[in-house]
């Protein structure tokens, strides 16, 4: 049995995270990855500490900086939602279990909204007790750190930049039944051309032809790198094979239509 194939950027990052009862929780601001023998996604990271580095620049630093200022602990980490809680990945990511809400939401409710008449709340601060922030979680790599990294082939020749990461749901078991999303490959674009918008890969028979042509043109010569073809996942990422041995992206999706749309 082959697992479901997803692309981190296309299917996971920046999607809404929803609780089982439909209430909105956060965005998938980043993904936490375990980079061992079998690399896989361990958790969804949320909040400005996860989003800031992805936004980058002055604004990104401002986001993380301000958040650090209001967090008491040394080297605070963004709130995480373990992947074992994820029930469904679709237009939104549905999570089960008891996930604490963002601390800003709690603060705003306690100090601004509840005191106003008619907020539908009881006494200020009468809600659930403050969750204890678990800080024993080891600092792991983030998926976004892979994206944008330079890729060179066996002989040191440039291949391009990582545009997306392919995930296959056949990793180690999380909880009882769900398998983790294993990092199974990279989509490498020849130049920095921003988002792939999904038009690169999808079967997308009826998408607007012009938009598709423009985006295809921008990403001409993109290649797929299977995780096994990576020699050294540092910066730059060094492959074990020459550039010519890599599969062009077009072939990947003509070959793997069925699994990609599953």
């Amino acid at each position: 049995m082959t697992g479901r194939v997803l692309h981190a950027h296309l299917h996971l990052l920046d999607r809404q995270v929803v609780r089982a009862d439909g209430r909105l929780l956060c965005k998938v601001d980043d993904l936490e990855i375990e980079t061992g023998e079998v690399p896989y996604v361990t958790a969804i990271l949320a909040g400005p500490l996860a989003l800031g580095p992805r936004v980058g620049g002055v604004i990104g630093r401002l986001m993380t900086g301000t958040t650090r200022l209001f967090r008491p602990e040394e080297g605070p980490a963004p709130p995480r939602v373990p992947m074992s809680l994820v029930a469904e990945i679709g237009g939104a990511v549905t999570v089960g279990g008891d996930v604490p809400e963002a601390s800003l939401e709690r603060w705003v409710r306690d100090h601004l909204v509840d005191p106003l008449p008619g907020s539908g709340g009881g006494q200020a601060g009468a809600g659930a007790p403050r969750p204890v922030r678990r800080s024993e979680v080891p600092v792991r790599d983030r998926l976004s750190s892979l994206v944008g990294r330079r890729v060179v082939d066996r002989d040191g020749g440039p291949v391009g930049q990582v545009a997306d990461v392919q995930l296959t749901q056949d990793g180690p078991l999380l909880g009882e039944t769900t398998q983790a999303l294993r990092l199974s490959g990279l989509v490498v674009a020849p130049r920095h051309t921003g988002q792939l918008f999904g038009y690169e890969r999808g079967p997308g028979g009826n998408s607007p032809a012009l938009v598709r042509v423009v985006i295809r043109r921008l990403h001409q010569g993109s290649r797929f790198v299977a995780w096994e073809q990576i020699g050294d996942a540092g910066d730059p990422i060094r492959l074990t094979e020459p550039r010519a041995a890599l599969l062009p992206l077009e072939e990947l999706f003509t070959r793997g239509d069925a699994s990609a749309s599953a």
Binding site: L112, V113, G118, G121
Partner: peptide, 18 residues
């Protein structure tokens, strides 16, 4: 930012939105 929003929940459940 992925906050809870909307008037279909009570204001206190969408605190940042309100």
């Amino acid at each position: 930012f992925g906050w809870q929003w909307g008037k279909y929940v009570r204001p206190r459940e969408a605190a940042r939105f309100h």
